Amino acid sequence: MLTWFRSVLFNIAFFGTTAAVAILSTPVLLAPAHWTMPPIRFWAWLVVQELRWICGIKLEVIGREHLPQSGPALIAAKHQSALDTVVWLLLVPNCAYVLKQELLRIPFYGFLVAKVGMISVDRSGGAAAMRHLLKAGRAAAAAGRQLVIFPEGTRVAPGERVPYQPGIAALAAATGLPVVPVATNSGVLWGRRAFLKRPGTIVISVLPPLPAGLPRPVLLARLESLIEAESDRLMAGQPVDNTVDDLAPRAAP
């Protein structure tokens, strides 16, 4: 009963916070694009605090030394929960998500996402969508941003497997960047399309980068093997380093 009550309160807080920040931030749409990131990062910080104080969900980050302090990066992150689309705004200084085009249709929020330069992709767009992804990815990397892509292409429930999409390998080839694999157990506590948010610790495990220039089949196979093995370890509750991070936002350069 307590978990249900906490989940109700969190949903009220989450949607209320999202609506309030989106509406109050609309004036920055008239300002330069870099003015848009601070309110979005503030929103992400609020969501993390709401999870902690309302739902009893803490976050732990291990391997953060593998993330860049500045400059371009290509991050391939396991996607089990909506939280995965929030937390990278706090973990790297200038995040550029690769996200589905439908998110741009959300009133106010979609305007901010477009303004800040997130990379939207039409998942049914075929070759044209891939060309757009590569062009936008190269531009983001040239601007020194950290690209975050979910190689499965969608949220996947804990314990389930789907093939990794070729977009991550194409983006690695187009940008010439090493790929940083990231595992998580986020879906155990905040499930895919789940109402209940269960108390506990969500762990984000950043693994050493895979070198640039790997052939596409090799990159995809190694990426999937590393991420899935580490995610399975986290979901099994095996011990991790006690490097608890407060996820204070990193300033963009």
Rank of each mutant, 00 (worst) to 15 (best):
A127N: 14
I149E: 05
A142H: 08
G167W: 01
I149C: 01
V179F: 00
A170D: 12
G137M: 07
L147K: 09
W190V: 12
P178D: 06
G176T: 10
F195E: 12
V148Q: 05
A194S: 15
G191N: 05
L171R: 00
L133K: 03
G176V: 04
L189I: 09
M130I: 15
A174N: 05
Q146P: 01
T154F: 07
V182T: 10
T154H: 09
V182W: 06
A142N: 10
N185P: 04
A170K: 14
V162Y: 02
T175I: 02
F150D: 05
P166I: 09
V162F: 04
R145W: 11
L171A: 06
T201Q: 12
L133Q: 06
V203W: 02
L171Q: 06
A157W: 09
V156S: 01
A143C: 01
Q146E: 14
V206W: 00
G191C: 04
P178G: 10
P163M: 07
G187C: 06
S186C: 02
R131G: 03
L177Q: 00
L171M: 13
A129Y: 07
A127K: 13
L196T: 14
V148P: 02
A140D: 00
S186M: 03
S186L: 00
A143F: 12
T175N: 01
A157Q: 15
A141Y: 04
R145A: 13
I204S: 02
A157Y: 08
Y164N: 09
K135N: 07
A157R: 15
W190H: 14
L133S: 01
R155H: 10
K135G: 06
V162C: 09
V188E: 09
P151N: 10
A142S: 14
A172E: 00
V179T: 12
R138G: 12
V182E: 04
V182M: 08
E152F: 00
P199G: 01
V182Y: 04
L189G: 01
E152G: 05
T175F: 07
V188R: 13
A140Y: 09
A194H: 13
V188A: 11
E160L: 13
A142G: 14
V206S: 02
R155G: 07
R198F: 08
I149R: 06
A141D: 03
G137L: 12
G200Q: 08
R155M: 11
L134C: 03
V188T: 13
G200M: 02
Y164K: 09
I202A: 08
